[in-house]
Amino acid sequence: MQDPPHASVDAGAPEASLDRIRRYSVPAGLNPEEKFEHWRTWYGSAIATPVRLEKTEKLIRPGFNPTALSLDGPGFSLVDVTNEPATCYWKGDTSSGHWLVHFRSSCARFSFSGRSEEVSPGTVRFLDLSSPGNFHAPTGLSAVRIQLDRSLLGLNDKSVKRLEGLGDISEHSLVRGLILPVLSGWQRTGMDQEMHRLQPVVRSMMTALASSLLEAPAEDGDLQPARIAAVKKFIRKNFRNQALDVDEVVTYSFLSRRALYYLFQDEEFQVSGYIRALRTLEALELLTDSGGWKRSPADIADASGFTSLRAMRRAVRDATGSSLRDVQENPEVPRIRAAELRKRIGI
């Protein structure tokens, strides 16, 4: 989930107190059309799956006032919204998350990907965003949803479709006893201060629920490819941060160092090697970029995530057999090596 524009966060909240919870309301002083555009911008940036909003009415009423709260976690997110009339569209891809939505208000016509139905207060539904789709939300629709990276659950397309076709699952014991209390009270629990401890809890709840609903056990072996994919996704997102190391990945994955090692034992790169390879590739592409502005080697090392210029020099020499000066003066061979490295990394 990307950070929303700064203008969309409560103007009165100081930066240090925002933590991970972001609050949204339409700013005062905007005309109705400007209000909708502001809402559209915030929504498109706050939802992990790339989406766009379109108006469903020619004129936006003067009282247009959607509100929302969003919270990012490691591998999951929460969004609590009271909506104004709009239709949400997305293109869909296999990396998109899976939504579990708790509808707190009634809705005479909630339409999801062409299926229109009446929604009662308290309804809980799975919604799949891996395929192209849309939903129409009328005025006053109030809902809170949790989105979890589907790779963390090891669900295939068939399982996801089965979950989506179940209808209301609000009476399920896990939903009533564990999940609804989380979705109904997360703003009041200080959850934003406990993010790194929550991911295994959230994942366990969702895995247990999916396993129960599908009447199939969750096998660790079946989750291994998904776990590797999730760890790699985390590293690709954060490798430019110099603080990223194996310990940070251990914290994210909730695996021990030994378990993380065995998870990657058949991969070409172990975790530390994968981080270094990504940083090396970034450095090579910046060093040989003829179209960009000239950056110093120290700036490139910093931008690539290396903790020092010396570390980048060593990595570049290991990858190309050349010094930094040779790489910059004769970029053709380093570009070939960069392409080979990109292929080995798998991106």
Rank of each mutant, 00 (worst) to 15 (best):
Met1Asn: 06
Pro4Met: 03
Ala11Tyr: 12
Glu15Asn: 08
Ala16Cys: 01
Asp19Gln: 06
Arg20Asp: 08
Arg22Phe: 13
Val26Pro: 09
Val26Tyr: 09
Pro27Ser: 04
Lys35Phe: 04
Phe36Ile: 00
Pro50Lys: 04
Arg52Asn: 11
Arg52Leu: 04
Leu53Ser: 12
Lys55His: 08
Lys58Glu: 14
Lys58Thr: 09
Arg61Glu: 12
Pro62Ser: 10
Asn65Ser: 14
Asp72Asn: 12
Gly75Val: 00
Gly75Asp: 10
Val81Phe: 03
Val81Lys: 08
Tyr89Met: 04
Trp90Tyr: 07
Lys91Met: 08
Gly97Trp: 14
His102Ile: 02
Cys107Arg: 00
Ser111Thr: 13
Phe112Met: 04
Ser120Val: 09
Thr123Phe: 13
Arg125Asn: 05
Phe126Ile: 05
Asp128Leu: 02
Leu129Asp: 01
Ser131Gln: 10
Pro132Gln: 05
Ala137Cys: 05
Gly140Gln: 08
Ser142His: 14
Ser142Lys: 09
Ala143Met: 11
Arg145Tyr: 15
Ile146Pro: 02
Ser151Phe: 12
Ser159Gly: 09
Lys161Ala: 14
Ser170Lys: 03
Leu174Trp: 06
Gly177Leu: 04
Gly185Met: 00
Gln187Glu: 08
Met195Arg: 12
His196Ala: 06
Gln199Glu: 09
Pro200Trp: 14
Leu209Arg: 06
Leu213Asp: 11
Glu215Asp: 15
Ala218Tyr: 10
Ala218Phe: 15
Leu223Lys: 02
Gln224Asn: 03
Ala226Met: 09
Arg227Met: 14
Ile235Gln: 07
Lys237Ser: 13
Asn241His: 11
Asn241Glu: 13
Leu244Ala: 02
Asp247Cys: 00
Arg257Thr: 02
Arg258His: 12
Asp266Pro: 03
Ser272Asp: 12
Ser272Tyr: 01
Tyr274Ile: 03
Arg279Thr: 01
Leu281Gln: 06
Leu287Thr: 08
Ser290Val: 03
Trp293Gly: 08
Arg295Gln: 15
Arg295Thr: 01
Ser296Phe: 01
Ala298Asp: 13
Asp299Ile: 00
Asp299Leu: 06
Phe306Gln: 06
Phe306Lys: 05
Thr307Gln: 13
Ala311Arg: 13
Ala311Cys: 07
Arg314Phe: 00
Val316Arg: 02
Gly321Arg: 10
Gly321Glu: 05
Ser323Cys: 01
Leu324Gln: 03
Pro331Arg: 05
Arg335Ser: 09
Ala339Asp: 13
Leu341Met: 05
